[in-house]
Design a binder for these strands. Structure first.
Length: 568
RNA sequence: GUGCCAGUAGCUCAGCUGGAUAGAGCAACGGACUUCUAAUCCGUAGGUCGGGGGUUCGAAUCCCUUCUGGCACGCCA
């Protein structure tokens, strides 16, 4: 539909001297219902420029669109309603999809550009819980959106693998655990002793001192401390990898907090040289009063570094290593100010690329109105959530299709899909109050609905006997499109590219999730009102339409990170 | 206290660079499986777009104000 808009705008540009092509592109819109055509130009804004009434302008333009793709135009209440020839819709839009297949929606318009995407970033030695899921799935989808449009993507998992908690873990390990236990139970055991540490430390505060000492040994690269730290990290990474595998997610870099330990000193030196650092109550800060922000803390009064210091060091490292055109950070909106501050510091350091740093925020996850907190036990582990979802899906499969092959894997794919989809279906800025009921709802606008519809389209295609190579436009006539359901479906499908543009511009995966629901509704409506395989005159046309649905849904599912379920 | 974000149907949300009668899903009620997968589809019902001003030919959308909720505001990340 993008192309159609463009052609129409080009023609209209010639009819209205005062307007440029982009003005017209911005103003062209999709009418709310089919009787009003396929495209519309509201003429109200033009009225002042042209000194004519909107109705007169629309009347005037009615005859100016004498191009071959336009069927007719109507002037209605100040709108120019444009009807596109169905022939063009079939021959071009359907054709693009049928020929494009898995490539439909992709482009290389950003070839040669690199984008770094920092997402997921779980804390090592703690299990993955529902609070970590958002960054992971939003980041992953943003990555795929960029890949679709030709960017080279570097997925970075900035692991939380450094901090005083490792001192605590070492003490806890030495007091209450063993090599065997940790090797056997992995993260679960690490969590057990971490929680135990906190309860014991309330009775015996000297444990905290011991922990501090161990962390300080770790910072001084004490051999035993480093070895234990590495071991904890490896153990916990193994578990985290399992989760990523279920989600079909991988990273290009796991350079986490510890990676930047030796890269902050030069940054501090540079800040000093550039006269940006100011002493304030013993701490070193960058003053941002001029920019209406509180100061950015760089060094604590004891001389140790802070979050912002590490982020600046990491950004500089990434610029040097990847020479990114954009560097995206997917974290909670609660960190808005933090990012604004250190982005500004990078700018003040004189780096032009500060403008290429982007923070993509998302809303908070709570449960029963309360914050998620490991210590209060107000937490849901992702593993538990996934297995519960898979179990419920399996129950449904056993009820509806007990003979299905590979049931467990499919149940997992759909269960996980349901959870990921629900996380990606609202605008990312929205807070989420987690409930089992909502997360495991499989009716309506859900992941299973999309995956089911995808499988339904696949099933029809399988039964059609048409193999991939036969999918072409031979013997297709525009007259084969005979009813409103087919046309409505084709129009919905044609919006895919614009939805990707929008999602990429707003860094908003929900744009795609919601669009997929639209496609499913249009297809299911069509499917329920017309036969495909028993069609008289336009069987092939309907099969191709179904193929187009498969490609658009398949590519969309890929972008939001759900499995393409060929059979369910 | 200051700043940022949110407030749309009973519930969860779209729509927000101003445009045609404010749309979905869930829940409720009534229909459709001898037919390509009924995890589907069709229909009914449900709204002073938090309140109040303003700008405009036109406001859920922009501006001001006010209420409610969340988050953030120096040595955590």
């Amino acid at each position: 539909m993008k192309d159609i808009k463009s052609v129409v705008a080009k023609k209209l540009e010639k009819s209205i001297e005062q307007l440029s092509w982009t003005d017209i592109m911005d103003n062209l819109e999709y009418p709310p219902n089919p009787e009003m055509g396929d495209l519309a130009l509201p003429c109200f804004k033009l009225s002042r420029v042209l000194r004519k009434s909107p109705i007169a302008i629309a009347d005037l333009l009615v005859n100016s669109l004498d191009i071959d793709i336009v069927e007719k135009c109507e002037s209605k209440g100040g709108y120019l309603n444009i009807f596109i020839k169905r022939e063009y819709m079939v021959n071009n839009i359907l054709k693009n999809m049928v020929i494009g297949k898995e490539e439909f929606g992709k482009s290389n318009e950003n070839a040669g550009k690199t984008v770094c995407i920092d997402y997921s970033a779980p804390n090592i030695a703690k299990p993955f819980h529902i609070g970590h899921l958002r960054s992971t799935v939003i980041g992953h989808s943003i990555r795929r959106l960029h890949e679709f449009r030709g960017y080279k993507c570097v997925g970075i998992n900035h692991l939380g693998d450094w901090g005083t908690q490792f001192g605590k873990l070492i003490v806890a390990y030495k007091s209450w655990s063993s090599k065997e236990l940790i090797e056997e139970k992995g993260t679960e055991e690490l969590v057990r002793i971490y929680v135990k540490f906190h309860s014991e430390a309330e009775k015996d505060p000297s444990l905290n001192d011991q922990a501090r000492k161990w962390f300080s040994r770790l910072e001084k690269k004490d051999e035993e401390a480093v070895e234990l730290w590495k071991w904890f990290k490896d153990i916990s990474l193994l578990d985290i990898e399992k989760t990523y595998k279920m989600l079909d997610i991988s990273f290009d870099s796991y350079a986490g907090e510890s990676f930047y330990n030796d890269k902050m000193e030069p940054v501090i030196e540079e800040l000093k040289h550039k006269n940006l650092l100011v002493n304030s109550d013993g701490a070193m800060i960058v003053n941002l009063e001029e920019y209406n922000m509180p100061p950015c803390l760089i060094l604590k009064s004891d001389g140790s570094s802070l979050y912002a210091t590490r982020d600046i060091a990491a950004a500089m490292y990434r610029k040097k290593t990847y020479d990114f055109d954009k560097c995206i950070y997917v974290t909670a909106t609660a960190q808005d100010l933090h990012f604004k501050q250190w982005f500004k510091v990078v700018e003040l350091m004189g780096y032009k690329w500060a403008k290429d740093l982007k923070h993509v925020g998302f809303g908070m996850v709570s449960m029963g109105g309360a914050k998620l907190a490991t210590r209060e036990g107000n937490i849901i582990y992702l593993d538990d959530l996934f297995s519960e979802a898979a179990k419920r899906v399996l129950d449904i499969i056993n009820e509806k299709n007990p003979d299905m092959e590979d049931k467990e894997q499919k149940a997992l794919d759909i269960g996980v899909g349901a959870i990921v989809f629900s996380d990606l279906s609202n605008n990312r800025i929205k807070d989420i109050d987690f409930s089992w009921e909502d997360a495991l709802n499989f009716d309506g606008s859900t992941g299973p609905y999309v995956q089911y519809t995808y499988a339904r389209a696949c099933s029809v295609l399988r039964k059609s006997g048409l193999i991939e190579d036969d999918i072409n436009m031979d013997n297709i006539e525009p007259s084969h499109m005979t009813n409103d359901e087919e046309f409505a479906l084709l129009k919905t499908l044609s919006l895919f590219n614009e939805k990707i543009d929008q999602a990429l511009k707003d860094l908003e995966p929900s744009c795609i999730s919601r669009y997929l629901i639209d496609v499913c509704m249009a297809f299911n409506k069509f499917y329920n009102s017309h036969t495909i395989l028993n069609a008289e005159d336009n069987k092939k046309f309907r099969i191709l339409l179904t193929a187009a649905v498969k490609y658009v849904l398949g590519n969309g599912l890929y972008i939001i990170g759900l499995k393409r379920t060929e059979r369910v």
